[in-house]
Nucleic acid binder design. Structure first.
Lengths: 162, 162
DNA sequence: GGAATCTCGGATAGATAATATCCGTATTGT
DNA sequence: ACAATACGGATATTATCTATCCGAGATTCC
């Protein structure tokens, strides 16, 4: 059980995009530069976020990425599912229906207790992520960022905006 | 984010082992037969469970596997971590410390908000799994199993016990 | 004591997914 | 028309998962 690298990048990118003034955008190349990650690969994650309507893309020159809606309406779960896919971590393969104790399918109308337990855990995980928004992330960032990092970030943003 | 196949097998195996009378065991081959899974690969999962002290192995002829402690003291989390490893799904690579806004390491003593949010979700997931024991799984099984499956299972167990 | 049986651990391949890159297409602003 | 950008597909590389096999160690039966 491991989350892909792209999830972290996507979360950071959305946090940065939340700080972009309305009417402006950031290109994929700039976002990659800011996080020092491979531009071509980050572009893939950004495309996934765009397909999921988490961020919006303006094509053409002067184009770039921006959040698709206000930061307080984008949950961390939205971002994780956009990049990682919305499949559950645990997939029941119904092994109980195999082997010497197997019966006809109608005997297995209820999901097995194991699948239910794993489903509850997945739900708890998703609920927690759904309850945290990009706005929360930015708030936490603003409260705890080192002044020097904030100044450097602001200076970079100035030259990167479009 | 995907859990390995072995997790489902391990959970089912532990449920079956919980039904083994005290003083008896089941061999890896029997457990594989019951679930119709590859014996050699299931053996790997059982070894992982044994290393984590979830189940105990009696070597030699007449040997086999049994639960290492009462079913109500084995959590689903114990089993999942034994098979999957105890690493967190999200691993923060501290991308904030890279790029044009980077500062000296002392500026990053606090974990970033993104890592904290993902950590809370992981904690919620684990808490849910920790709160469910093998005894709960067996209870659910006993309450909802089809009579025919129960009878077949009992008959198989009779010939499989050692 | 010796042989048989079983678990345990490591070594080994193939299959699947993650990581990373490149190129052609579509779109838009200059 | 040209340049810059996002988009999608194709591809290569690497890691992880899945699956199997074999030898070592341990225990019981003869």
């Amino acid at each position: 059980m491991k989350l892909s690298q792209g999830v972290e990048w996507a979360l950071h990118c959305c946090s940065v995009l939340a700080l972009v003034p309305p009417g402006h955008t950031l290109t994929a190349a700039r976002l990659a530069e800011f996080h020092e990650v491979p531009p071509a690969y980050l572009a893939k994650q950004l495309q996934a976020l765009a397909r999921a309507d988490v961020i919006a893309a303006d094509p053409g020159p002067k184009g770039g990425y921006r959040l698709a809606r206000p930061a307080d309406r984008i949950s961390v779960l939205d971002i994780v599912l956009a990049v990682e896919g919305d499949e559950h971590a645990f997939h029941c393969e119904e092994v109980r229906q195999r082997g010497p104790a197997a019966c006809a399918p109608p005997a297995y109308r209820r999901p097995c207790g194991i699948a239910l337990a794993m489903g509850r855990a997945e739900r708890a995980w998703r609920d927690e992520l759904r309850g945290t928004s990009v706005a929360h992330l930015v708030m936490d960032l603003a409260l705890h960022i080192h002044p020097e990092a904030a100044q450097k970030g602001a200076a970079w943003m100035e030259g990167a905006l479009r």
